[in-house]
Amino acid sequence: MIYITKSYLPDLQDYVKYLEGIWERVHLTNDGPLLQKLEEDLKKELGVKHLLFCTNGTIVLQMALKALNITKEVITTPFSYVATTNALLWEGCTPVFADINPDDFNIDPGKIESLITENTQAILATHVYGNPCQIEQIQAIADRHNLKVIYDAAHTFGASYNGRSILSYGDISTCSFHATKVFHTVEGGCIVTNDDAIAKKLRHFRSFGHRNDDYFEMGINAKNSELHAAMGLCVLPKVPELIAARKLRFGYYADKLDFTRITRPTLLPGTDYNYAYYPIVLDSEETLLRVTEALKAQDVVPRRYFYPSLNTLPFALKDGVQQPCPIAEDIASRVLCLPLYPDLPESDIDRIATLVNEAIAIVSEVNG
């Protein structure tokens, strides 16, 4: 079976060396030395002031909303993983969906301003597939209307925009370190800010609202363990090598797919990409389903990533009414991510591309 992705595992002995230290110290969690080292290494790698290693990429979105006192309307994207919307709903906020740009699939800044009301408190945008949003335009809108900016940057590790890590933008940015990501800690995530006061609040939030034996404020359990930090310390030095391998395979696909019948999202100029995903957009949902069927018949498992458009979810309706986002709804019905990971053989990519091209040709022939 060839799945949409395959987790990278470092040399086992490298991981065991960290485990031996954990066994000697018997310090498994609660801000252990490996967690502190990982946080410092990540801050240096990303060039950010404050970074907290946490349990996963969803809880850090919830922490961001809490830290910025966001409780009302938040303008957000309908084209993201469901965790983006779930975090808003879980924290009692109202998601207001702005449609996406048809070129890069990120939230369209031109659709944001008309949705702002007296209840709007923030913009929560996703850098889709690791491709940065139009950051300057979003920030300008936020500045004009005194709004906070939170970025769901779950896909962006190792990618930069205008020479800066994409995680360095916004009031707060969050990232997922799930096992499927370019950089991972098996399970995990981080929250990033350059604001000292926000960072202090987030540190309390992560550990039940207290530091050592002193209680400061409301909090939650978002701590991560030494075992997860050890995995991160093993994987982090390999990230440039892993991105290079992904880029190579990205190029294989580009050489072999028939782009007379396929489109892809465009990268924002100034982006140094991390090659996290390989999405293609077919001409119709019918074609997508035929391609998916052809791939699965040959033990290749792609993913409809993202589907459905989040504004169509029954539990995300505003006042019981669906907010129309025709571009996101259309793209979500036609986008398919193909398998991509650092050691995916070129022969498999060639086979996948052939299956995709043949399935598209069959649909085109049938439909005249």
Rank of each mutant, 00 (worst) to 15 (best):
F97Q: 06
T117D: 05
M231G: 01
P132H: 05
Y273P: 08
L340K: 05
D299W: 04
K247V: 09
V182P: 07
L295N: 02
T71Q: 06
T260V: 02
T5Y: 10
I75R: 01
R164I: 01
K17S: 13
D11T: 12
V300K: 01
G92V: 09
I141W: 05
F208N: 15
T185H: 00
E187D: 06
P78I: 02
D258E: 13
L268F: 03
V239R: 15
Q139K: 03
D104R: 04
V356H: 07
P237A: 08
L257G: 07
L202E: 03
L227D: 00
V96R: 07
D299N: 14
A361G: 07
G130T: 10
I262A: 05
L289R: 12
Q13K: 10
I362E: 15
R25P: 02
E241L: 14
S168N: 11
I331H: 02
R264C: 14
W23D: 12
T29I: 15
L68K: 10
K6H: 14
I262T: 04
D330G: 05
N194K: 02
A153V: 07
N146G: 01
M218E: 15
Y305C: 11
N274Y: 01
K17V: 05
L51S: 12
K17C: 10
Q121D: 04
N367G: 12
K72Q: 10
A316H: 09
E118T: 15
C337S: 13
I262V: 07
C190Q: 07
G368L: 08
G232P: 01
A197Y: 09
V16E: 13
E217N: 09
K37G: 03
S333F: 04
T55P: 00
L338G: 09
L233T: 00
L288F: 03
T85H: 00
P279F: 00
R351K: 14
Y129G: 00
G32M: 11
A244E: 15
I191Q: 00
P10C: 08
G163E: 07
M1N: 07
T174P: 06
Y169H: 08
I262Y: 02
T260C: 03
H228W: 07
G251S: 13
P308K: 12
L68E: 05
N146M: 00
T354H: 12
I22A: 14
L282W: 01
H228V: 01
H50L: 14
K43R: 15
A64E: 03
L317V: 05
E45D: 09
Y81C: 10
A159R: 04
G320A: 06
V16K: 06
H178P: 00
Q36I: 03
T354A: 11
E358D: 15
N146P: 01
K6W: 15
H145T: 00
L310H: 10
L313E: 14
A122M: 11
Y275S: 04
K44A: 09
E136R: 12
L19G: 11
V82L: 07
G320D: 06
E365M: 08
L289D: 12
D214W: 13
F306S: 05
A316T: 08
A140N: 10
D104T: 13
T29V: 12
I100M: 14
Y273Q: 03
A199D: 02
A154Y: 02
R164Y: 15
G368P: 02
Y305A: 07
P342W: 02
Q323A: 06
G57I: 09
S176Y: 00
Y277S: 13
A98P: 03
G189C: 01
I75L: 04
H50W: 10
